[in-house]
């Protein structure tokens, strides 16, 4: 079976700092990979390279056997790249255009991707919003009239409107309340199961990653330190840093001070 997404040896440096150093992974159709690490570990840079917002210094990204160029020219190439990978950003307050209603935003995406018929678009918008648990009221609303969770679900619907093969979620639930997080995570597991979309889930929060992903890639200062199935990783972490991330999740008998000490030592 061909891999849905194949990432080989991505590297990116800014000036003298190495942000991402040798990240490789493959994602089967419908698979879900957690990209885990603390701030500055290179996970967001990796996500931005996946969707073409940053150009990698070296390495390749292949979706369904098609290599994605770092720079795309021309309308057809842009649309093809968009169909390969979409992204949902961390901050639902800033990731939607404040001037447009949710419906108008989705309409724009569908029109761009060749859906010419107005009636068909309206039906598709309703379907997409239904998929993320939103309705006509939200379609007619401006982003600022919606809650954080509703906006993030609208942002997911916008990404799904492109019908991507892979969806990258860059800390997509980190800014949300715990109960809202749960709603959004359920939406994600549903679309993964139903549409077979591959998920790359970027997060610092292992508790959330465990809920969505089959496997996790742990990044430390841009370098992969551990890449294993989720259960294994959680039960028996190989690397000290992974253990540290696991211990950082609040639990009974939690000792933040010793974690801070170990983090400084790492």
């Amino acid at each position: 079976m061909t891999a849905l997404l194949e990432v080989t040896d991505l590297r990116k440096t800014y000036g003298g700092t190495t942000a991402v150093d040798g990240v490789s992974f493959t994602l089967p159709p419908g698979g879900a990979l957690g990209l885990v690490g603390e701030s500055g570990s290179g996970k967001t840079t990796t996500a931005r390279m996946l969707v073409g917002l940053e150009r990698p210094d070296s390495g390749s990204i292949t979706v369904l056997g098609q290599p994605l160029g770092a720079q795309v020219r021309g309308r057809a190439a842009r649309l093809a790249r968009a169909k390969a990978i979409q992204i949902v950003f961390q901050d639902p307050y800033l990731s939607l255009d404040a001037r447009l209603t949710i419906g108008a935003t989705l309409d724009g995406v569908l029109r761009l991707h060749g859906q010419g018929d107005r009636v068909a678009r309206a039906a598709r918008i309703r379907e997409l919003l239904g998929q993320v648990g939103l309705g006509d009221r939200e379609a007619a609303a401006l982003p600022r009239h919606l809650s954080g969770g509703q906006r993030q679900r609208a942002a997911i619907a916008r990404a799904l409107a492109v019908e991507p093969a892979v969806l990258v979620l860059d800390e997509a639930v980190s800014a949300l309340d715990v109960s809202v997080q749960a709603q959004v995570l359920n939406v994600l597991t549903d679309i993964r199961r139903e549409a077979g979309i591959g998920l790359v889930f970027v997060s610092h929060d292992l508790a959330v990653v465990r809920y969505v992903c089959d496997e996790a890639l742990v990044l430390l200062r841009g370098r992969p330190v551990e890449h294993r199935p989720m259960e294994e990783l959680l039960d028996n972490p190989d690397h000290d840093y992974t253990r540290l991330l696991l211990d950082s999740v609040p639990h009974p008998g939690w000792d933040p001070e010793s974690i801070a000490r170990r983090r400084r030592a790492a």
Binding site: L79, A82, I87, F89, L94, S95, V162
Partner: peptide, 14 residues
């Protein structure tokens, strides 16, 4: 640099 602009670019707009 706002994410809504990035989102438009990722969607494939010129």
């Amino acid at each position: 640099n706002r994410p809504y602009v990035s989102a438009y670019l990722v969607q494939g707009h010129a």
